[in-house]
C-alpha cells in the first residue's frame, strides 16, 4: 500500500511520518500546492507549524489546494490520519469535530504519555494493544468539543498533558475513516527511542487498506 504525507510550509514531522509509514508500506510526500494525491491509499497530515500557525493552528493550511483533495478523498471514504498539527488542520477543515486550544498550563509540553485505546475497532487501532506509550509535543493540544464525539484514545489517568476535555487524546469522525490525535505515533516506531507502540497505528491502517482492496476485488 502507499501512504501520502502532506507537506506544508512549516511542517516539520513529515519526514518522520514518511519513515514510519515506510516501515509498513510505501510512502510519498505530497506538496501543499498540488491537487494530486498520486493514487495513495491513505493520507497522513503530519505535525509541525503549517503556515507558521498564523491566526490559529491549522486555520490557513485548511485552505491549501491539496486539502481540497484530502477533503474529497475523506468524503469518499479514504483513510486520513492527522497527527498534532494535522489533527488541528482536520478540525479546522471540518473533517473532525471539536477544536484544539492552548494547553491549560500555557506551556509547551514534550513527554511520553500512556494512552488507553478506547475503541480498538477503528481502521487506525485494530492492531493496537489496550494501552500505548507515545510522546506528545505541543502547546495547542487541549481538545474541546461542545458535542459528543467518537473517542478513540484517552490519556491514561494522570497522563493528561494539556487539560483536554475528558482526557481525550484522539477522535474519529462519524464514518470512522478520519482519525486525529495529538500524540505522535511516528516518533514511537523504534525501541531505540523508547517505544515502538506508534507502529501499531500504521500497521492498523495497512490492515484496513488490505481488507478494503479484498472487498473491492
Amino acid at each position: 500500500m502507499k501512504f501520502g504525507v502532506i507537506r506544508f510550509p512549516g511542517t516539520c514531522d513529515d519526514v518522520d511520518a514518511q519513515l514510519a509509514a515506510q516501515r509498513v508500506g510505501d510512502a510519498e510526500l505530497l506538496w501543499h500546492r498540488d491537487r494530486d494525491l498520486k493514487g495513495v491509499d491513505a493520507v497522513i497530515v503530519p505535525g509541525g507549524f503549517s503556515y507558521g500557525d498564523y491566526l490559529r493552528a491549522g486555520a490557513i493550511a485548511r485552505f491549501a489546494p491539496v486539502m481540497e483533495e484530502v477533503i474529497e478523498f475523506a468524503h469518499a471514504g479514504g483513510l486520513v490520519l492527522g497527527i498534532c498539527n494535522g489533527f488541528q488542520i482536520l478540525c479546522e477543515a471540518g473533517l473532525l469535530p471539536g477544536a484544539l486550544l492552548i494547553n491549560d498550563h500555557l506551556k509547551f509540553v514534550f513527554r511520553q504519555v500512556n494512552l488507553e485505546v478506547v475503541d480498538p475497532n477503528t481502521p487506525f487501532t485494530r492492531e493496537c494493544p489496550p494501552t500505548l506509550s507515545i510522546p506528545v509535543k505541543h502547546t495547542t493540544g487541549r481538545y474541546y468539543t461542545p458535542t459528543p464525539v467518537q473517542v478513540v484514545l484517552r490519556y491514561a489517568p494522570g497522563n493528561n498533558p494539556n487539560g483536554s476535555q475528558d482526557d481525550i487524546a484522539g477522535v474519529v469522525n462519524n464514518a470512522g475513516n478520519v482519525f486525529g490525535l495529538m500524540p505522535h505515533p511516528e516518533h514511537a516506531v523504534d525501541l531505540l527511542t523508547g517505544s515502538e507502540d506508534g507502529l501499531r497505528i500504521f500497521e492498523s491502517i495497512r490492515t484496513a487498506v488490505g481488507e478494503r482492496v479484498k472487498v473491492t476485488v
Binding site: L55, I60, G98, A99, Y144, P146
Partner: peptide, 8 residues
C-alpha cells in the same frame, strides 16, 4: 470561515 473558529 477564516478569521475566527466559531466553535471556540
Amino acid at each position: 470561515r477564516l478569521l475566527t473558529n466559531p466553535l471556540i
